[in-house]
């Protein structure tokens, strides 16, 4: 599989139409979490899903647009746009390398995603917001700080704790759903061929 095939190839009309769906899934995933009162976010399932079947660039655009749309009502999320973009890019690249074909590979890939989030999100959180995000995870940061850690290590530790649970679950859910998609649909997408089960 060649990596460089041009943006025109990646952004076919079918892939472009996936972007709004991906954004909406990010939203709705978070809403279902609220309805079921679960203690996680799961607001990246759509980004992961589109990155898997639409390629890294489509995933990146989905991630960026999600935060821009959230930003309409909560501008704090503008600042965290690079995080979702990085998730889309990394998942897309890993999926191209065939890391999303088996469950154990997906869990390995999620660790790479967690690492990416850690590297991209922590500087934004510390430098722009002094370690806070306005989410419930801030309480964890405060706990780490109270136990005598520095701000960077406190944010890092919190991120590892919260993100690894969140990203593993999101990745596995996206994987399960893609595996349920029909081969007829997957074959129309540029990056769908990997996920068609061989019989």
């Amino acid at each position: 599989m060649g990596i460089k095939r041009g943006l025109k190839y990646d952004f076919s009309l079918l892939a472009i139409l996936l972007i709004p769906i991906g954004i909406a899934i990010n939203f709705v995933g978070a809403q279902i979490i609220l309805l079921l009162k679960l203690p996680i976010y799961l607001n990246t399932i759509g980004t992961i899903l589109t990155a898997m079947i639409g390629g890294p660039w489509v995933g990146m655009v989905t991630g960026a647009s999600t935060n821009l749309v959230v930003g309409i009502t909560n501008p704090v999320s503008f600042a965290f746009t690079p995080v979702q973009m990085a998730v889309g890019l990394v998942v897309g690249l890993l999926a191209m390398k065939g890391m999303y074909t088996k469950l154990w590979k997906v869990i390995l890939a999620s660790m790479a995603v967690v690492l990416t989030v850690l590297i991209v999100a922590s500087p934004i959180q510390v430098l722009m917001f002094g370690g806070a995000t306005g989410n419930s995870s801030d309480a964890v940061v405060a706990t780490f700080l109270a136990s005598g850690q520095q701000i960077w290590t406190a944010v890092f530790s919190t991120k590892i704790l919260v993100e690894s649970v969140d990203k593993i679950i999101s990745n596995v859910i996206a994987f399960v759903i893609v595996m349920k998609m029909s081969p007829r649909y997957l074959s129309k997408l540029n990056y769908g061929a990997i996920f068609i089960k061989k019989k």
Binding site: L13, I25, V28, L38, I173, V176, I177
Partner: peptide, 27 residues
């Protein structure tokens, strides 16, 4: 918590599969 967790996938997957399939018609 575990019961509510189990409800997540049956809610999300029909939603996603349905809306993804509708993109074909939209094209």
């Amino acid at each position: 918590l575990l019961v509510r967790m189990k409800a997540f996938l049956p809610t999300l997957s029909p939603l996603i599969l349905g809306s993804v399939a509708s993109t074909e018609e939209r094209v």
